[in-house]
Amino acid sequence: MLTRLANPGFFMRVSGLALAPLAAAAALLFALGLYLAFFASPADYQQGETVRIMYIHVPAAWLALFFYSIMAVSALGTLVWRHPLADVSQRAAAPIGAAFTLVCLVTGSLWGKPMWGTYWVWDARLTSVLVLFLMYCGVLALWRAVDDPGRAARAVAVLTLVGAVNIPIVKYSVEWWSTLHQGPSVFRMGGPTIDPSMLRPLLVMALAFTLFGTALHLAGMRTEILRRRVRSLTLLQAERLERAAA
């Protein structure tokens, strides 16, 4: 059943149907989220207006981890089950995850300057997110460096799984070490510590980011499947030409 669902042909049909509604829902939620973030939520008593940066920084951080987790599961799919869609999924997720990690790092810095007095500190959370960004860059570079797609997929899968060690480090860094970065305030025992007027825009923006990222991931996977068809047909055509010449 699962194999049938993960069949590239079936995936192309289903993802083709899902893409437009996903993108439309993301756009609507972005509009609502931005309205809540700028017009229907107060300034924070400590952070002032800069709290509005959190409505993009926090969702970007969640998605940076989310897409690396997708890549890690896909890497297992490539190495253990050798499923063709697993590599396709991993390849489509990497640039999206890297982009969200970059957004997380830069918006965090832009929040840090007025609040902490500096754009950057080598604290455990910031450093582990920088390592996450470098892992994404490494994965993208490795794909470009290895010509044979099969070998590239296996090498990237191994590198991705090695880098997955960093995911719990990013998540728990604020609890394991004394950091300048604040501790968890949404997903924690005892519930969120954020006032509902600020939690609402945060969650709406997080959902908008997630739908946007998912739509991009599906679109990326569809393009990657087409790229592989192009490659197969190009190789077939080259073989035919070679045989005709001989």
Partner: peptide, 18 residues
């Protein structure tokens, strides 16, 4: 448009980059 105060440059830079 709401007032983003003296930190406007940081807020709009963050949203612009995103």
């Amino acid at each position: 448009m709401m007032e983003t105060g003296r930190h406007a440059v940081f807020i709009w830079s963050a949203y612009g980059l995103t």
